[in-house]
Structures are given as structure tokens and as C-alpha cells.
Design a protein around this nucleic acid. Structure first.
Length: 371
DNA sequence: AGGGATACAGGTTTTACCTCA
DNA sequence: GCTGAGGTAAAACCTGTATCC
């Protein structure tokens, strides 16, 4: 029965990993009670690990086979960001570049419809005390471990405490057995990449941490890893993937919102075209009504704005419809600041929207082209 | 200036698990 | 009930780039 974690580094290989201390810290938390079992067998011998490295095994093999709980079926739902129940904050500012400052975190929109129940913060994490020098050493050894450095040789079983029913525990046992069986088979085959399925509690814990800050300092990473009995690399990967999921979700929401904006604008465009046709028809059928003898309604070819080409003072003689349209256009212009597409998305939809200028004064080109 | 270390984003691959026929 | 195919989410990985020292 092997309990050590070999990281392929002579300096760190002799250093037992955090789980050796037993995860009573975490288990003592009533809300997070899970224990870790260590399965016997299927462990690599040091020789095997050495052989792996010799054969160019340059990825971070995860040799710890995790028990997959029956509750994991719901984990995905809990992990994915729920945008339906929560009030969606459509802050569609352009994607701000991720600051490279390691002490700052990029701002992602996290749709959080739940309250922080524990307010977990690894910075003030009570259960883990990482001494500075120790942390530095561990960080240097474990954080962002380069290829070839993380050939772990232990297996973990994160089994839920008895907060669930017996049948579920039975299922978990079955799944653990299956996982163990698979792991055994794959080990015999050699270099199969094993994927650790994080337990529900581990995921929840990481989620809480992610809500606090979606990037990790090396020490935070180490503290989380120790607390969850994971490798720092796993915590790091989890956060990377989590950020990617958040961004993807945000992109989907943005896309949906822009689609709605497009539909709205299309509808408005259709309406304005229709009104333009009505005005043209009116002008044709009753040219004296508008008292614009030399006026023609033309569309500016460059900006597609409707404009007159005469010198007639038309506003006072506009038809009710046209007046309404003018008022609407004015209103639109005034409300541009409230247009979400022009402000919050960072897209210049507002500036390119066709504006209806039914009548204008003394201008052959009635408007200014703005960049 | 430039080179190494590090962190991250974005994309891809692999794996576990679910659904359904 | 069992089984295999297909789909999906997530873990792990790879690569390029930016930043810091």
C-alpha cells in the first residue's frame, strides 16, 4: 500500500503530500464531510513511474481514481451556470483583456443566483495553515508542474459520508468497484490517461472558491489542493476549465442578446421602410399637400439616410405621419444613450442605425457624417 | 535587450457518464 | 434487465502569448 505521491522530482518525491495528514480537516466540516480512502493495489511501482518518464510520458497523468458518487449525475447541473433562474446581468462590455498582473483577477460575469453560504476564502482559510517557506517550497515543487513532473502513484476514494441513503452508498460502492476495475485494467495496459471525477463536495468547494476569486495565487492553489486532497495541478486545471466555461456561457448569453437586438432593429428597419414608402406614395398622390415643390426624398448612398434635396422649409408642413416619424427619430436619437446595443455591448450598432430624416432645411446633404 | 519562468486563454483530446433504442 | 451507440460534460493536456524578473 503506497501512500506517497511521487512527483518525479527528487527533491519533492520524498516529501509526502498533504493528504498524508489525513483529511480530517475537511471531514470535520459538517457541511463538507467526506473522507478519503486509499485503495490498495493498482499502484505504480517507482520503477513503473520511472519507466513512464523514460518513455516520454510528458503529461500530467492522474493516477488517482476517484469514486464517482451517484450524486455526480447532478453535479453537472450544479456546475453549469444557471442563467435561467437568476436575473441575468447583461453587462456586455467588450471583453476586457485579462490582466496579467498576478495579483489581480480578470472580471468575469458569474451568474450567481445563490448566496455564499460559507464565504469560503482560501486567503483566510481556517483549516489550512501554510507556512510561508513551506508554501514556497511546495509551490515551487507542485505549482504548475511542468510535464514529466506529476506522475502520481496513489489512488484516492472520496466517499461521501452517510448523509445519503444506503442505496446510494451501495451505488457508490458499485461505482467505486467499477472504477477500480477499470483502473486496474488500464494499468495493465499501461499509459491510459485516467480522469479523476471530482466529488460533489470537491466541486462545490472549488465553486465557492471560484466565486470568491476566479484566479488563484500559488498559495491559494496549494491551500485548496491540500484541503481537497488534490494535486495543485488539478486545482489549477479546474480553475482554467471553470474560467473557460464561464466565458463560454457569457458568450452564449451575449450571442442570444445580440440576436434579440438584431431582431428588434430589423423590425424597426422594416417599419421605417414602410413609413418611407407611405410618405413617397403620399407625395406622389398629393404633391401640393406637402408643399415641397422641388423636394425629393432621397437616400444618402453612403449612410442610407433619407434626406431632402430641396430648400423647402418642410417641418411646418409635414404630414402627421411624417411628424410622428420625425419625432420618433428625434426620440431615437435622444435615447441612443439608453440603447443597450450602443452602450453596453461596446458595439456601435447605435451609430450605424439608419435614422429617418424626413424633412430638413436648406441642406443638399442634410446631415453630418460621423466616423 | 533578451531569456527563463510563470500564468493564462483557447483549443483539443480523453474519459466518465447518461440516454435511448 | 442488459448492451452498445451516440451525445455531452468535464478533466487533462497542448500550444501560443503576455508578463514579470
Amino acid at each position: 500500500m503506497e501512500l506517497g505521491l511521487s512527483l518525479g522530482d527528487a527533491a519533492t518525491a520524498s516529501k509526502p503530500f498533504g493528504f498524508m495528514e489525513k483529511s480530517t480537516k475537511l471531514a470535520n466540516k459538517a457541511s463538507l464531510g467526506f473522507c478519503m480512502g486509499l485503495s490498495i493495489g493498482q499502484n505504480h511501482t517507482p520503477q513503473e513511474d520511472e519507466d513512464k518518464e523514460k518513455h516520454g510520458n510528458n503529461d500530467h497523468k492522474s493516477d488517482n481514481t476517484n469514486t464517482t458518487t451517484a450524486a455526480d449525475a447532478n453535479k453537472r447541473k450544479s456546475l453549469t451556470v444557471d442563467t435561467t433562474d437568476s436575473p441575468i446581468q447583461l453587462d456586455l462590455l467588450p471583453n476586457t483583456p485579462v490582466p496579467r498582473n498576478r495579483n489581480s483577477s480578470p472580471t468575469y460575469l458569474v451568474y450567481d443566483n445563490g448566496n455564499m453560504s460559507r464565504g469560503f476564502d482560501v486567503n483566510r482559510f481556517p483549516a489550512v495553515v501554510v507556512h510561508e517557506d513551506q508554501a514556497d517550497q511546495d509551490v515551487a515543487a507542485l505549482s504548475s508542474s511542468p510535464p514529466n513532473s506529476a506522475t502520481s502513484s496513489f489512488q484516492m476514494d472520496f466517499c461521501m459520508y452517510s448523509s445519503k441513503g444506503r442505496s446510494e452508498s451501495h451505488n457508490e460502492a458499485d461505482q467505486a468497484e467499477r472504477a477500480s476495475s477499470r483502473a486496474s485494467d488500464e494499468d495493465e495496459n499501461g499509459s491510459a490517461r485516467k480522469k479523476l471525477r471530482l466529488s460533489k463536495d470537491q466541486s462545490a468547494f472549488l465553486e465557492e472558491s471560484f466565486k470568491e476569486h476566479n484566479t488563484l495565487t500559488p498559495k491559494q492553489k496549494l491551500a485548496l489542493a491540500k484541503e481537497l486532497n488534490l494535486r495543485p495541478r488539478q486545482v489549477e486545471v479546474w480553475f482554467q476549465n471553470r474560467r473557460a466555461r464561464t466565458k463560454l456561457k457569457q458568450t452564449e448569453v451575449d450571442c442570444e442578446y445580440l440576436k434579440r437586438c438584431c431582431e428588434t432593429l430589423t423590425e424597426e428597419n422594416r417599419r421605417l421602410h414602410k413609413e418611407l414608402q407611405e410618405l413617397r406614395a403620399l407625395k406622389t398622390s398629393n404633391p401640393f399637400y406637402m408643399q415641397l415643390p422641388a423636394t425629393t426624398l432621397t437616400m444618402c448612398p453612403s449612410c442610407e439616410r433619407v434626406a431632402t434635396t430641396s430648400t423647402a422649409a418642410a417641418t411646418t408642413t409635414a404630414t402627421p405621419t411624417a411628424t410622428t416619424a420625425a419625432a420618433a427619430a428625434t426620440t431615437n436619437n435622444q435615447n441612443n444613450t439608453a440603447d443597450p446595443t450602443s452602450k453596453t455591448t461596446g458595439l456601435s450598432l447605435g451609430s450605424t442605425r439608419p435614422r429617418f430624416y424626413p424633412f430638413s432645411h436648406t441642406q443638399t446633404h442634410p446631415h453630418q457624417h460621423t466616423a
